[in-house]
Computed example of a mutant assay.
Amino acid sequence: MAFLIPWGFERKSACRALALVLFVLLPTCARGAGPSREEGEFEIRIDGEEIGREKYSIEVRPDGIVSVSTGTLRNSGSEGGRVRVETRLEMDPHYMPRSYRVETSAGDRKGRLEGTFSPGQADFQYLIEGAPRRSGLMLDEYYAVLDANVFHHFAFVGRLFDFDDGEAQALDVVIPQELDNGTVVIRDAGLDTTEIGRKEKRLRHLKLDSGQLLIDLWLDEERVLQKIALPQRRIEVVRRP
């Protein structure tokens, strides 16, 4: 699998210990908030230049939640070209993952990752031009998926965050394409004015700290994700009209 923009989450063990001492962990029973059906398209930019797009949908069903996406990104490797990324993530009503599939293609090169999840464990199978390779992670009981180069997954953070709490909150996450996990600390930065599609909008602003990377999210009143910024990577991801 090609990792064009690695997230750079701090290793779970150290960050988890800090989260337990200083922050409120998001509750394992959280059902989240947001529309039952959300869909859209993001434009992905580096230094203001478009490098890709991602179309996605999130559907809340009686027995769980399903998200799917199709995206293209400019390949940062020496061969150039573009990488196509398709995902399907099935979750329980609390955004705990059940199964995940990622398919990538870049020219003649194709890859597939399949993941299955249970409390405390994630198992993966990679198919990349050869025999399958299996791997796994030992995790805590509750976690969410925030995969590399799959930007709509940040919508789950906005849906799970408790705006009434008033404190920083921590969420354990797994990053399947990097075979890694960590903890992200989330803070409410209040209402903020930012540019979306050449228009100024007043939106809810969340600040995320992965231990190695700072991430900004902007949400509307229905908690629909409008914009993502990764200043250290000079990346902006903006919802298209």
Rank of each mutant, 00 (worst) to 15 (best):
Val24Ser: 15
Ala30Cys: 11
Arg37Pro: 00
Ala33Ile: 05
Ser36Phe: 04
Leu22Val: 11
Ile58Pro: 00
Ala33Leu: 11
Arg31Tyr: 12
Arg31Thr: 14
Ala30Pro: 02
Pro27Gly: 08
Tyr56Arg: 05
Tyr56Gln: 07
Ser36Glu: 06
Phe23His: 15
Glu39Thr: 02
Arg37Asp: 05
Glu49Cys: 00
Gly40Asp: 11
Glu39His: 07
Glu43Phe: 00
Phe42Gln: 08
Glu54Asn: 03
Gly48Phe: 04
Gly34Asn: 06
Gly34Ile: 10
Cys29Asn: 15
Pro27Met: 07
Val24His: 15
Gly52Asp: 04
Glu50Tyr: 00
Leu25Gln: 14
Val24Gln: 15
Ala33Gln: 10
Gly48Ile: 02
Ile51Gly: 02
Phe42Asn: 05
Leu25Met: 13
Arg31Trp: 05
Glu38Met: 06
Thr28Lys: 14
Glu49Gly: 01
Gly52Ser: 07
Gly48Cys: 03
Thr28Gly: 15
Ile44Thr: 07
Gly48Pro: 06
Asp47Ala: 11
Glu50Ile: 08
Val60Cys: 09
Glu54Cys: 03
Ile46Leu: 09
Leu26Tyr: 01
Ala33Phe: 03
Leu22Trp: 06
Tyr56Glu: 05
Val24Gly: 12
Leu22Gly: 12
Ile58Asn: 01
Arg31Cys: 11
Tyr56Ser: 04
Gly48Lys: 03
Phe42Gly: 11
Ser57Glu: 14
Ala33Trp: 08
